[in-house]
Nucleic acid binder design. Structure first.
Lengths: 341, 341
DNA sequence: TCATCCTACTGAAACGTTTCATGAATGAAG
DNA sequence: CTTCATTCATGAAACGTTTCAGTAGGATGA
């Protein structure tokens, strides 16, 4: 691997290394003819800046880390996109790290980020109580919690209001006339699940609507299928006519099981999911779902981070909460009886 | 941000910086009591290695870049997982970059990787003819092409045999008795699509089977729906009874349109997709699909890369081609007429 | 006893930048 | 003609490591 250094560029252009550096970083300090000569030499030699040397001298890098639970999940991909946008605008680079919900991997990534002297970290931690994060904060590395972990005084956080999301979904079911509604999701130990259930409960309060809870062992298609089987076994008169699922995978599994059992969606059972994943709209019956402002979440997180990085003096830690909204599709639409094609 | 350097550790432990460095990198050269003293100081001061300084001095970093077309695509996530495994074993780190099929983003990522002096790059390029890659190779940075770009003498590549994949799918349809088969996918300018079609053509050659081609404008659910509409309009006697789709999204769209039109899958039309995405098994009718050895692809790519990095002298560029296999599910299963539950 | 070899450690150079005090050249003002 | 700014460019120090030639002090062998 042949590498050209600033020194060789300097020699080639007949100037000092300081001048080359100035051309790169503060071109306004360099006379135009000189500048052009140096630029020409850079091109001729194929010079590429050595970021390590730069970072070493500067004492800080130009990267921030983004550690997510699952890179394959569109939720995090969209967050990453938002964060990258903001980083770009600040002449920074985002290093994307996938913890895959594995504490060991998360720890290794954080260690490597520290060794790289990243300017800050955006993270959805595997374990919200991890002391690894406190360590980072303690070392003075700005940190923003994304969609997990309770607000703490010494760091910023961004999140989406899951209680509101649950409420929106179930209010919609109530409004379209359902009197027996089920919440399907689990395990309840996941804060997102219990928050969404709390919202659902809130929505039926004061109405004559029944809310049945079916806890699944995981937020997966299989979990939805299992719950669907349970529902299908109920007598028609006791079966919920509206179901709110804690996420879209569960909803898809449920939908599949309903179809298999000859139960019509939405005529017999209306379904609302959560997350609005790409496949929600592409399901056998397009799925109503609660959509989170994912990209906005990433942007906001990055902005908080850069605010802390740049103006560390007067930075105030904040805890932003965003509002989700409901996307209504066929799976919960009132059957349009008198409509022709 | 407070940072402790090796110098302070040395002072704290009462040794020279060289000794601290040895404790870190070649502990066998250090007497045990000294080593323990230094380790204690490191812990006490919360020392974290400065990777920039290390890389600068060493003249090379410990990272390789992996540039993918879409981080959200499980195909690439699995490749990443495979590559990371291999990197881990070599004490290297993978930097994951998402080009999102955007040439500008790809270029920026590559530039940044170069500035970081990565040891090598694994890439599925946006534009296979890009001179940016030649530049990298020319600068002596090892490069492995992943699943795109024709084999070149100056770099390794790994790929999956798409012709074989197409053949497997259609041979299966032929074997289960279908005499009118359709290939659905497009645009044909994508090599993967035309290769899969070529395999499909090969499979019907010499058989009395008809192969109809329906070109879609994109490999999306919508593309599948549009094709499905076309198929549904055909008279039953002329309609293909088996369909091979160029990917699973198309297959899902097609499946959805069939269901909507009252055409039974697989009784009236059998469907085979490609990629075996997570949702394939979770579709309304679980989808048969051609599965690619994704993680293995990532492993192989990384192994080729490290081979080139480590033994640059006697490294021979290779072009590996992996074989996909067919996963048969309900969507193409012969209806089991006499089977009870 | 001396020569030789080991072991454990030291001290300084080097990596490629950025930054800053310094200096040379030019032109303007008096 | 001197003085003073202003504009450009220079050269060296510094960043935190790793590496390598040295060296001190035993231990070993003759």
């Amino acid at each position: 691997m042949v590498t050209t250094s600033i020194k060789e560029v300097a020699r080639h252009a007949g100037v000092s290394v300081g001048t080359v550096s100035n051309v790169l970083n503060r071109p306004e300090l360099v006379a135009e003819p000189t500048r052009q000569r140096v630029v020409a030499s850079i091109d001729a030699l194929g010079f590429v800046r050595n970021e390590s040397a730069r970072a070493l001298r500067a004492g800080r890098s130009r990267t921030v880390g983004l550690v997510v639970l699952d890179v394959a999940n569109p939720f995090f991909t969209d967050i990453a996109r938002g964060a990258e946008d903001v980083a770009d605008a600040n002449d920074m680079v985002v290093t994307l790290c996938n913890s895959a919900e594995d504490l060991g991997r998360e720890t290794r990534h954080l260690a490597h980020l520290e060794e790289q002297r990243v300017r800050g970290v955006l993270i959805t931690p595997v374990d919200t109580g991890s002391t690894r994060l406190d360590q980072l904060v303690h070392r003075g590395i700005p940190l923003v919690l994304v969609d997990r972990g309770s607000p703490q005084a010494d760091r910023c956080s961004v999140a989406v209001d899951d209680v509101l999301g649950g409420r929106l979904a179930v209010e919609h079911l109530v409004a379209t006339g359902h009197q027996r509604i089920a919440f399907v999701g689990g395990p309840m130990s996941i804060p997102q699940v219990s928050d969404r259930l709390a919202g659902a409960s809130g929505a039926v309060e004061g109405t004559p609507t029944d809310l049945l809870t079916i806890e699944t062992s995981s937020l997966s298609v299989q979990g939805g299928r299992d719950a669907g089987e349970q529902l299908a076994r109920l007598a028609v008169g006791r079966r919920p006519t509206g179901v709110f699922c804690a996420n879209d995978l569960v909803a898809l599994g449920l939908l599949q099981e309903m179809t298999r059992g000859g139960i019509q969606v939405p005529a017999d059972v209306a379904i609302v999911g959560y997350d609005d994943i790409e496949y929600a709209a592409a399901a056998a019956v397009p799925l109503s779902s609660v959509r989170q402002p994912r990209e906005q979440l990433g942007r906001a997180a990055a902005e908080l981070l850069f605010d802390e990085i740049n103006g560390s003096a007067d930075h105030r830690h904040q805890h932003l909460v965003f509002e989700p909204d409901l996307v209504v599709r066929d799976s919960s639409r009132l059957p349009a009886r008198a409509t022709k094609r």
